[in-house]
Design a protein around this nucleic acid. Structure first.
Lengths: 340, 340
DNA sequence: ACTTGGCACTCGGAAACCCGGAGTGCCAAC
DNA sequence: GTTGGCACTCCGGGTTTCCGAGTGCCAAGT
């Protein structure tokens, strides 16, 4: 019926516009897609679609471009993630294996994602909140300085230099280390923090003892918001690929990309694993990013989500492709984290 | 004499051009700078400077702009690094203290440098080659997996998951850990690697023993070139500040900034501490970066250089200011590393 | 009730065009 | 060696012109 054809027209408009970056007209449409009707008919459909707010024309007597709402419709109803080809899968696997380090995994993922989608990629480090403590080490630097090293299940390593009020000999340090390990290892980070809090109080009610200081530093390191904020950005050069009006938004884009808090918020919307979240244009809270879309998803071992990753690009982007790439990379990262 | 005045004219041209981004003519020059001569005289001087290749005119009947050679002359002979104001020094100190982590120090430095110079900042992590081993830790993950953690004097932490051919019990692991510590701690990384090589051979001539595998992984981690390549970039948004022809080079710029190897090479020219290196325009090896300059210097505790940092921007940049900022930040980073 | 060809109309954007002003080089005079 | 005068150049910006893609609407066709 007409309804079906209208949607076909919408899909065609989105696809053509994404491909050509130019408003698409009725004539070009019937030429490039076998719609089986005349341009005049398509024009009628276009008028209807415009009525519904799914497409718009930049100025009278120009072709149509999809609106945010149009993209949304396209993403929600007119597309399903196309699976990656076997070759692509192999390429991903090859690219990601051989990473022997969390940093490695993350940085490779960013580059991979950027290359795959030809867009800006963002990968968040595993959240501390979702990690358990794997090991704690105290390395004495000088008489009164100790380096705290915190190793987490997700592979993250946090470190911190602690200044002691008084010297602490090797034996005392070793004993403390043992206690801390017993209290914290295997625990979720929040529980470990409270356990440690209890431990230090119990050992020494006094305030400025070395034990208390170290305990406090550990607790602080575990609950520190800042350390939670680690994200890595890649593929910024792809921003320059847009020869058109998107140039205007390149500055706000770059600025946003430096604000890791903003990035985290963009990614943060992706909560559940497996499901790919798409934010289109002005749907997000940032006015400056009204011409950009974000495709993101969570990753993590098994069903658990310990972090998210995604890409950000102009609203006029290849959604099916991006969604597929994001999902695929997230999957591979998850399995790698599973192994490690 | 005329010679002196000519140099004054060159300086004035550079300063004005940097400030206004527009070719500067004789009339504007005498108005803005008290040269005490008439435009006609300045024109003669300009002709002479152009003869020497220090300035050029984009087209007939336009003002003059400095050539690379002109900038070079300006940097080498007409300027000395102006000291930072007390307020600026305080701001730097405030910004950098409170970092309790190498990552912290580095990322704060980048942001600081970018903000100070309003340009793109690059900071290299301390080179592994210049570090000594501070601690080695073996954390058992599963029966046959061990997480190697390598803590270096510069604060860098390298980690790696090692797959063992057969299980290794806690006692054996502890013993191995002790041996490794005794062999490696305090050594320069290269020497530690050879010492470890000897150790593993001596303990077990067989090839696939756990000990050998771990030793090999450690040696590899220490000598790995890749891990040496860590650089951080910040202030990319400043690239968009240039409303003029520099826009054209923004893409190659962004591309270069993603290629950490390239960045390292740019920074790498800075070898000695204290001295600020300036590379202007086409002096470097990269054709794409012919319109950019790099101001860099080394940093490290005491006189030693363990890494470098700097800024990169258009050839038309505020050299004295950038040099001062780079030097100041390098100094502060050095003292902080000294403490840690 | 849709679809289609025809047709008048709109309007953005590229090309052509024009013009002022900033800047130059040169020369003669100081 | 410096300066004022002067003729000349040419870029940049503003305006105008013009083409064509695209539209909306209508009347005719199925």
């Amino acid at each position: 019926m007409q309804e079906d054809r209208r949607l076909a027209v919408l899909r065609a408009i989105v696809e053509d516009y994404v491909a050509t970056r130019e408003p698409v007209g009725s004539k070009a449409l019937v030429e490039r897609h076998a719609l089986g009707v005349s341009p005049a008919t398509v024009r009628n459909d276009m008028a209807a679609l415009e009525e519904e707010g799914l497409i718009a024309q930049p100025h009278t007597s120009a072709g149509r471009i999809p609106t945010d709402k149009g993209y949304r419709f396209f993403v929600d109803r007119l597309t399903q993630v196309k699976p990656m080809s076997a070759a692509e899968k192999r390429a991903i696997a090859r690219f990601l294996e051989g990473a022997h380090d969390l940093d490695d995994v993350i940085s490779r993922s960013v580059r991979l994602l950027a290359q795959l989608t030809q867009q800006v990629a963002i990968v968040q480090y595993p959240t501390l909140a979702r990690s358990t403590v794997r090991h704690v080490e105290l390395v004495s630097l000088t008489e009164t300085r100790v380096l705290l090293v915190l190793i987490l299940s997700t592979g993250r390593v946090e470190q911190r230099v602690v200044e002691l009020p008084e010297g602490l000999d090797a034996a005392a340090l070793a004993e403390l280390r043992g206690k801390i390990l017993r209290a914290a290892v295997g625990e979720r980070i929040t529980e470990a923090a409270t356990a440690l809090g209890r431990l230090t109080e119990q050992v020494e009610p006094g305030d400025r003892t070395p034990v208390a200081v170290i305990g406090a530093a550990l607790v602080e390191a575990m609950s520190n918001e800042r350390t939670d904020e680690r994200v890595v950005v890649g593929g910024t050069a792809n921003l320059a690929r847009f020869g058109d009006g998107f140039d205007r938004s390149i500055k706000p884009m770059l600025e946003a990309l430096e604000e890791h808090v903003v990035l985290l918020q963009l990614l943060g919307e992706a909560t559940s694993a497996g499901a790919v979240t798409v934010r289109i244009g002005a749907e997000g809270p940032y006015r400056e990013l009204a011409t950009t879309s974000v495709v993101a998803t969570g990753y993590g071992p098994g069903e658990e989500v310990v972090g998210s990753l995604g890409v950000v690009g102009p609203t006029r982007m290849d959604y099916p492709g991006s969604m597929a790439a994001v999902r695929a990379v997230a999957r591979y990262v998850s399995t790698i984290l599973d192994q490690a």
